[in-house]
Design a protein around this nucleic acid. Structure first.
Lengths: 147, 147, 147, 147
DNA sequence: TTTT
DNA sequence: TTTT
């Protein structure tokens, strides 16, 4: 009964920090900037450009891809969900909102991503494969459906 | 290097048609309506309400869920991708655009969906599981309102 | 060069708080919950259900609509953007991430929203009107099911 | 009570065709390709790469921007809605599904778009302006809200 | 008909 | 802290 989805296109603020946890599970973090253009209202008021910084978190395969290919300045498409974590500092409870990514796309001209195609996701196979587990994909090809 | 995503909230036009293909792979089809309110332009012209019909296609587990729980009139959230198929009729090539769903959500009051939660997806586990890490989520549980 | 978009479907945690600022500009705030189902990993670990709370902010017309029709428990579709504000408490800088909504949809059975259709947006006319062309839409009306 | 949203990132297949209708209203059309990577299933079957072609339609200001800056090969982010039109050819009714865009973003390195920032939308001002009609934006700056 |  |  619920949907929690974030879609961002922006630029990476610094190289990812990657950690390896138990069982060698990788986690990566980096900031992503989205910038809204400034404009002038109909009443002549200047609204300045505004940059928003987003904390991106990636797990496992996506984190490993980020470690290899994401750099400060990279332009990315990110799809994920919002998650707020709490932590303590000096006895004060604080909250951080992060975007936990499921899909990461490299945009713009191929840099050195080494991917045939810029798409990566955290499903076991490619995103397309989310609809074709266990049985061969040829069986569920929509192209030969007789209707 | 690409994204193909559709997000719909609408009402089902008729009960799903479900077929079982080779290896018992299920496919379901049904029409989903989205309706844009009519309005009046600043120049006083009436733009009527407009209903758009979308061909929804679901595979495997999602198709089986649709068979059981989706009915004419159901309100659904659908996330998927656009796909255009071609077919011939009377020697004329024709095209049909469909939304192949990855995520289907039952909205509104719980009917008899039998799901604890109305969300279903075509990944092997739940959507959350796409990032599943074996570590407990309890430490950063946001179950208590942080504001 | 950037995109900052959030899409949520969830339930309102408490009645909106609405303030009127200078020039009678309305702002509304309320928490929205999204819940991810719990599941069991392939290695047998139980991942519990997880509720995420989102701070929704609405301005002007949307805030006034929220004041009238949004209640604790309402099921809503929200589309907006992420925005992080900073503020100080006890000399400590703190951050809050909010979703500033452009589109709010009432889901589920019609309560008493008083709208012909549950959609509301902050554009001057309806969302459809963003592309409003003064020509009639009747020629390409898709009101009859094309399949 | 409904949502009809499409989000695409892809490459333009040919230069836009632009027409000017009554009252000088511009309409632009072009094909946009999204490509899903091929992959191998767990049972060893090769699923080939698949390209999907989308018919993009833009009105007014967006059409004029497309006329100036969109070229064959351009990488774009498109946000819009699905719309199916019917037309007749040789006495046979046929249907075409199009994406009517509200938002168009130029991705990748700046070519010669001439925009300070690649974002364009069909609202009267910039997307940000959708939340600030009539009154100055300074009044509704979230930054000085005392809550 | 694009892109990798 | 990015990008334009």
């Amino acid at each position: 009964m619920s949907v929690n989805k974030v879609i961002l296109v922006g630029n990476v603020g610094k190289d990812p920090e990657v950690k390896y946890l138990d069982r060698n599970v990788a986690v990566a973090n980096f900031p992503l900037a989205t910038t809204e253009r400034g404009y002038k209202t109909s009443t002549g008021i200047e609204v300045p450009e505004r940059t928003e910084w987003h904390n991106i978190v990636l797990w496992r395969g996506l984190a490993e891809t980020a470690e290899k290919y994401v750099k400060k300045g990279s332009q990315l498409y990110i799809e994920g969900k919002l998650q707020t974590r709490s932590w303590e500092k000096d006895g004060v409870k604080r909250y951080t909102t992060e975007i936990v990514a499921d899909v990461m796309q490299f945009l713009g001209k191929r840099a050195d991503s080494g991917q045939d195609n810029g798409t990566v996701s955290n499903s076991q196979e490619t995103p397309a494969a989310q609809n074709s587990f266990e049985a061969p994909a040829s069986d569920d090809s929509a192209d030969d459906l007789p209707f």
